[in-house]
Design a protein around this nucleic acid. Structure first.
Lengths: 306, 306
DNA sequence: TCACCTTTGAAAGATATTTTCGGGGCGGGG
DNA sequence: CCCCGCCCCGAAAATATCTTTCAAAGGTGA
């Protein structure tokens, strides 16, 4: 007869609050206090031991355990586990409140959440908006390129370097240029079978358009990675890869999301090229890992002590 | 002081999978087995006692407790609670969505989708695993810094440049260094009130550790941005910012996700500093926009033609 | 091969949970 | 009005669970 009449029901997942209300009338005063505390603050109670919860509610351990049983759990331990789950659900439920812009007085944790969210959004937008046909064509051109030159300044310059670094790693001849004069000088030497890539968010950065124009006129295959496919740069591009343009604000300059977007495109190019030239790319990648291993001190791992 | 330094961080809520990945390299074999089991089946493990989990993984209770500690919890009890929370979230929320690896013969559209998804995941992991206390401290140091020097080589070098570029834009004195010799030379000149930042995914890149050490010993405030908080670099860092470590594969080198992760951290630093120095940062940002406007040809918009 | 350091599990020790058991309040009957 | 008995309740014992300690096993470099 010691059976919990609440019955065959397995431990409740999230319906705890409801269960408390349903069962409250059949509870004794002390047990009601416990149930109430649990329903009011699942997260807080999950952090307490039996003794702690007993003290908080002004009752005893035995009563807490009895309440847990009545609610359908084998014991307090399991109630506590369920409580932790409930708390986690509640927490995650109110997560999507980060869509607001970043304010000057946002706590640092909010900044992290908002930035991460925004950049995730940017990635999704970019992936959705990327023209796979153009991308495939660009990859095709790169895979057979004799030489690759990448032009970009400022933030886009770093993306250009990133692409060049990656291509170098799989055995392609690639260089990035930030100096407009040198870039033009370099572009003059390009011919058919060479590829020139211009990276510019605005699509109208003269310093980057100029070398691409020169490359274009000398017969090289030209690719533009830009957030403005209608920009000037597109006039001289055989293939246009569009990056996303996220809303920006005072504390969140355009450079951030455009960079994220550009990098995704660059990564896609890289992986695409690596696929098409797998025979040479794979050993080259392995070799570069090997060569760099010596630059890392061996003590790097395991030694937690100090 | 054998205390787990990873530690000031409060127990992680849902970032557990990420934390397992980040810390796995610094774990012993037995602990890895435990961590793996926990990451693979949070719900199942939450139902087990210490002894149960020890038996399941073929280890001992002591090892399980040690693993829980390493993951940032006071003991197994708390890990178990977190596990229950995670399980509840997974159940209610979105699907686990396992990503297949990128294959050599994946069509280009799949490559885009997989890369975008992976990078989104990396962002989420990084945001979840970032210690906001450390971040806040780092921001505080940067905000009042007389001078900021950033050290990074290869892919991390680009991130270093990105940070330096951003800080320059809001009126801070910042420089990035890729040349190890020049970096050390530069570090020697640092004093208190100066800040040195080392960026290295492996945490054991000698070329980056060395300048940080020199800066540390000269009294500068030092910050490490690394995927291995237990690495050598942490010895000389006043503040450690941990980036996420995603699984990598042949066609998806570590450089990709680590770069994404590092950039998010860098962005957070930048925004944090901009907030704290808003009075000077805002006009500086506005001025840099203004100054760059001339570099863009006016015809940039509208003219879709050609 | 040896010395040293790390990792590991068994068992002792400390906490937390569950059970037991008796005191005490409350309502009904004398 | 008082007594009786039932049920609620909490203190403390009993048990389960978690944590710490310690010594042996395993590996590594000289």
């Amino acid at each position: 007869m010691k059976e919990i009449f609440a019955g065959g029901a397995p431990p409740a997942p999230a319906a705890l609050a409801a269960k408390v209300r349903t069962l409250a009338p059949s509870m004794t005063r002390s047990m009601q206090r416990v149930a109430e505390a649990v329903a009011a603050d699942p997260a807080g109670c999950a952090a307490l031991t039996v003794t702690g919860l007993a003290e908080l509610t002004g009752t005893s351990e035995a009563t807490v355990v009895r309440t847990a049983r009545l609610l359908g759990y084998p014991g307090y331990r399991d109630l506590r586990l369920a409580l932790a789950g409930l708390a986690a659900q509640q927490q995650s439920g109110r997560a999507p409140a980060v869509t607001a812009d970043i304010a000057v007085d946002d706590p640092i944790a909010d900044v992290v959440a908002k930035l991460a969210y925004d950049e995730q959004q940017t990635l999704a937008d970019t992936a959705a908006g990327l023209d796979t046909v153009q991308l495939g064509a660009a990859v095709g051109a790169l895979a057979v390129a004799r030489r690759v030159e990448v032009y970009g300044v400022a933030a886009s310059g770093l993306v250009a370097q990133d692409l060049a670094q990656k291509l170098l790693r799989i055995g392609h001849v690639a260089h990035a240029h930030s100096d407009p004069h040198l870039a033009v000088t370099n572009a003059v030497t390009l011919r058919a079978k060479d590829v020139a890539i211009a990276i510019t968010h605005s699509g109208s950065t003269g310093d980057v358009i100029e070398p691409l124009r020169v490359a274009f006129e000398h017969g090289a295959t030209t690719i533009a990675i830009t957030g403005r496919p209608d920009g000037l740069v597109s006039q001289y591009a055989d293939h246009i890869l569009t990056t996303s343009t996220a809303r920006e604000s005072e504390l969140r300059p355009a450079a951030m999301s455009s960079r994220t977007s550009q990098l995704l495109v660059v990564d896609c190019l890289f992986v695409g090229v690596a696929q098409r030239t797998y025979e040479t790319a794979a050993p080259a990648l392995a070799a570069s890992y090997e060569a760099l291993a010596h630059r890392h001190r061996s003590g790097g791992d395991a030694s937690v002590g100090r």
